[in-house]
């Protein structure tokens, strides 16, 4: 299976890369700084092709596809993990900041999908997974841009699932809650222990690990999920049940 993966160098994206390679997939990995995972890349050179690219430059995304070496077959799946998380209260949520957030969390995903779904790049029956967030269906103070962008991803998923169904291309979203990643480490540094405990208490199964999210992603790109499209899968240790 040939998979295009974004955000491949850290957090859920890197764990996805590891598990894809372990499952025998060939991965076209997009990231900004591959030096972070140099050792892993060295050990798995035959299964990964890397493309250093900043997805904030949405206009250049189509160029990535023209560079892919697809001589041995077209893409079977795309997993879009790249994204940013920011705590910005309403008063500081300027159009410029929201633009940046939407560029990376929403517009880059649409542009990736627009290129990926062309007949010359992906096979009929291909599968796409977008990383949204449980914040895409819930709210939190200071997260207007983030929540809005992750909710927008769900709209993209539903609409494109309908549009691409005629070629049996499936599009789904995974909505993780708080998992231990470099991104959440930064979040916890700015709040005190009692606040962290309070957030933890709201997760009946505690905070998650990246390994808790990736199996669902792999399931969704597999043939076992061939009748699933346009759906959102919440993986949050029970957080959203409250």
């Amino acid at each position: 299976m040939k998979v295009l993966l974004t955000g491949a160098t850290s957090g859920i994206g890197f764990e996805t890369l590891k598990q894809l390679v372990n499952n025998g997939c060939f991965v076209y990995a997009i990231g900004r700084d591959f030096s972070k995972i140099e050792l892993f890349l060295k050990e798995n050179r035959s299964s990964i092709e890397t493309y250093e690219f900043d997805l904030a430059i949405v206009d250049n995304i189509e160029n990535i596809f023209s560079k892919l070496d697809l001589d041995n077959g077209k893409l079977d799946a795309m997993i879009h993990c790249a994204g940013i998380e920011e705590t910005t209260p309403l008063i500081q949520s300027t159009p410029e900041k929201l633009d940046h957030m939407f560029n990376i969390n929403v517009f880059s995903g649409i542009e990736l999908l627009r290129s990926f779904s062309k007949k010359k790049y992906c096979n009929d029956g291909a599968s796409v997974v977008f990383l949204s967030s449980v914040m895409g269906i819930l709210g939190q103070p200071g997260k207007i841009g983030y929540c809005a962008s992750k909710a927008a991803v769900l709209g993209v998923v539903k609409s494109s699932a309908l549009e691409l169904a005629r070629r049996k291309i499936r599009v789904n979203a995974v909505l993780p809650g708080i998992v231990n990643t470099p991104m959440t480490k930064l979040l916890f540094e700015s709040i005190n222990e009692s606040q962290i405990d309070k957030i933890k208490e709201m997760h009946p199964l505690g905070f998650g690990e990246v390994e808790d999210v990736v199996p669902t992603i792999l399931f969704l790109i597999s043939d076992k999920a061939r009748w699933i499209t346009g759906q959102s899968f919440v993986i949050d240790g029970g957080y959203s049940v409250h």
Binding site: T87, P89, Q92, P141, G142, Q195
Partner: peptide, 9 residues
């Protein structure tokens, strides 16, 4: 807590 958040930003 919101003021703290604004201050951090």
């Amino acid at each position: 807590s919101m003021t703290e958040m604004v201050l951090i930003g």
